[in-house]
């Protein structure tokens, strides 16, 4: 099957890949580029486990075709920490036990970062609605909300 040759920037690195038209950006990340941090929970945009940013915009990578990534900048969970230095959200997730099985965690972190970029001082309700696109079945969301609120406070102070 004929494949498209796509060039994109992923977590700051220039990357080339080949993909079929029907392959999603999530398929490309996971299967072709071995960036398995984004997860496929549903494939239909209903769980948010595959959340990444595309030119700075939060998207479900299962709802983007690989071919649509041409020339775009993509950021995934693998690029969130600065070397060994965890992002404040990652640190607060660990601290507040905001994860259990962890399958939804990469998507939630990417969403939370995007949320705080737009709204650095959210209310609890704004965080709950802002993260409504990310399903978590283990935590009941409580510690996730706490971690995001706490990280927001720390990031505002920094």
């Amino acid at each position: 099957m004929k494949k498209h040759h796509i060039s994109a920037t992923i977590n700051g690195d220039e990357v080339d890949f080949l993909c079929e038209t029907s392959e999603t950006l999530l398929d490309v990340l996971r299967d072709d580029l071995n960036l398995t941090g984004a997860k496929e929970g549903c494939g239909t945009g209903d769980c948010g486990a595959c959340s990444v940013t595309l030119d700075g915009v939060l998207v479900c990578s299962c709802l983007v075709l690989g071919v649509e990534a041409e020339g775009k900048e993509i950021e995934t969970i693998e690029g969130m920490a600065d070397g060994d230095e965890l992002h404040p959200l990652q640190r607060k997730f660990v601290e507040h036990i905001a994860l259990q099985c962890g399958i939804c965690t990469p998507g939630l972190l990417i969403s939370a970062r995007s949320l705080l970029e737009k709204n650095p001082d959210p209310t609890e309700e704004e965080v709950r609605f802002g993260l409504a696109g990310n399903l978590c079945r283990c935590t009941g969301y409580q510690n996730i909300i706490k971690a995001v609120m706490d990280a927001a406070q720390e990031m505002r102070g920094a």
């Binding site: 479900c60 983007v64 949320l115 409504a132 696109g133």
Partner: peptide, 9 residues
Amino acid sequence: IGSIQVKGR
């Protein structure tokens, strides 16, 4: 229209 992720597209 869907989640924030969905509205991103």
